[in-house]
Design a binder for these strands. Structure first.
Lengths: 225, 225
DNA sequence: CTCCGCTTCAAACGTATGTTTCAAACAGAC
DNA sequence: GTCTGTTTGAAACATACGTTTGAAGCGGAG
C-alpha cells in the first residue's frame, strides 16, 4: 500500500481504548495489539503517547469545530442581529455534535466520553493543547451564552455555566455505562440524541432558575404539628 | 507512640494526592514520601494500593453516610408522613456534606473531588466497593427524589438525576480551580457553601424543567423579519 | 536490476511501578 | 533487664511502561 493505513488503525484503536479506560490506564501495547500494528509504530508516526492523544482529539475536534462555527453563523444570521436565545444556542451546539459524520454508530458516544475525560482527567498537556487549538469556538459559545442570559450577574452566569459543563461532561463521559444500566433495568434503549434532547431542557431550566438562595429553603422551618 | 499515626499520615497524604492527580497517576512512592513514612508501610497497613483507595473513601464516606441518614430522619420526621420536597431533599444532602467536620478547610473540596473521580475514573474495584458499602443511604436518597418528583416518568427522572450528579461532582471536583479563576478575574472570594447555595436552585430548576423536547426549540423557526 | 526513502519489525533500553523480604528498632508485659 | 509481638527500614523483586535502536522489508525512480 502506498499510503499506509497504519495511522488510522492506531487512531481507531486508541480512540476506542481511551474512551473505555482513560488515558493513563491505556498502554501503547494495548493500542498497538488492538490495531494489529507494531509497538514502535506509534512513536514512529506520532512521536509520543501524548502526541497520539492530541491526534485522537484533533481528528474529531477539528471537523466539529468547523461545523460548530457554521452552525453559529447560521443561527446568528437567522436572528438578524438579535442575540439568539439560550435554547437556540444550546441546541446549535447539540445538533452540531449529533450531526457530525460518524465513523460508526458509537462514534458520538466515544466523542462525548473523550470530551468528558479531557475535562476530568487532569492531563495538563491535553488541557493546554485543547485551549490553544480550539479557543475560538469555545469563546464564541461563551459570548452567545452571555448575550442569551443578560438577566444573570456575571458571577451567577459563571457558576451556572460550570454547572452546565459538569452535567454535560459527566453524563456524556459515562453515557455508555448509564445507557447500559437503564437498558438492564427497564429494557429501554436510549440513543445519544435522546440523551441530548433530555439534557438541553434541563440545562436551560437550570440556567434560568430563580436567584440563588443563601439560606435554607422556606419550607424547612420546623412546623408545630 | 502506642497507636502509630502512620496510618493517618498515609491516609492524609493519599487523600490529597488522589484528589490532585487521580488514582493511577499517584504512585505509592509519592504518597509515602509526602507522608514521610516508609514505602512498605502502605502494604503493611492496608495490604495493597486498591485497599488504600478504599480506606481513603471509607474514612470520609462512613461518617458522611451516618450524618446523611440522621439528616433524612429529621427531614422525614418534620414532614409528618408527607414526602419532603425536592428542595428540602437536596438541601438536606448539601447541608450534610457542608456541615461534616473537616480535617482542614479544603476538606470539602477534596471530598467532592474524590467522589467525582470515583464516578469518572473507571476503576472497577472502587465502584464495586462503593456500591456494596454505601448502597443504603444512596438508595434512600433516590427514593426521596422519586417521591419529590412524582410528575416525572422514571426514565426522565433517571436521566435528570444523572445530570444533577454530573453538575455536582464536576463543579465540586474542580471547585478549587474554579474559585481561583473567579478570584483572579473579579477579585471575588467564594466559599464552598456559596457554591452549594448556587448549585441547589440550578439543580432543582433543572429537575423540574418542562418535558424533554424531541425537536428543535420553538423559537428556531426562521422569522420573516 | 539497483538504489533510496519510507515503513515495519523484533528486540532491547532505561525507568517507574506495586509488592515482598528480612533484619533492625521499638513498646509494653513480665 | 528480658522477652514478645508489632511496626519500621533499606533493599530487592518482578513486572509493565514509553521509548529507542538497527536491521529487514517494501515500492517506485533511475
Amino acid at each position: 500500500m502506498a499510503q499506509s493505513d497504519t495511522v488510522d488503525r492506531i487512531l481507531d484503536a486508541a480512540e476506542e481504548l481511551f474512551a473505555e479506560r482513560g488515558f493513563s490506564e491505556t498502554s501503547l501495547r494495548m493500542i498497538t495489539s488492538k490495531a494489529k500494528v507494531n509497538l514502535a509504530a506509534v512513536n514512529y508516526h506520532f512521536g509520543s503517547k501524548n502526541a497520539l492523544i492530541h491526534a485522537v482529539f484533533a481528528r474529531f475536534l477539528s471537523p466539529f469545530s468547523a461545523t460548530l462555527e457554521t452552525a453559529f453563523d447560521n443561527l446568528e444570521e437567522r436572528c438578524n442581529g438579535q442575540p439568539p436565545t439560550l435554547y437556540q444556542t444550546l441546541w446549535a451546539l447539540t445538533e452540531s455534535a449529533v450531526r457530525m459524520p460518524q465513523r460508526n454508530d458509537r462514534g458520538i458516544s466515544i466523542f462525548m466520553r473523550l470530551l468528558g475525560l479531557a475535562y476530568t482527567q487532569s492531563q495538563g498537556h491535553l488541557r493546554k493543547f485543547l485551549e490553544q487549538e480550539y479557543s475560538q469556538p469555545f469563546g464564541r459559545f461563551m459570548r452567545l451564552l452571555k448575550e442569551a442570559t443578560p438577566e444573570l450577574s456575571s458571577v451567577d452566569r459563571y457558576w451556572r455555566i460550570q454547572f452546565m459543563l459538569g452535567a454535560t461532561a459527566f453524563t456524556m463521559s459515562s453515557s455508555d455505562a448509564l445507557r447500559d444500566i437503564l437498558q438492564n433495568k427497564t429494557g429501554i434503549e436510549t440513543s445519544v440524541q435522546e440523551i441530548a434532547a433530555r439534557l438541553v431542557p434541563f440545562l436551560a431550566a437550570g440556567m434560568q432558575a430563580p436567584d440563588k438562595l443563601l439560606m435554607p429553603p422556606p419550607e424547612s422551618k420546623v412546623s408545630v404539628a
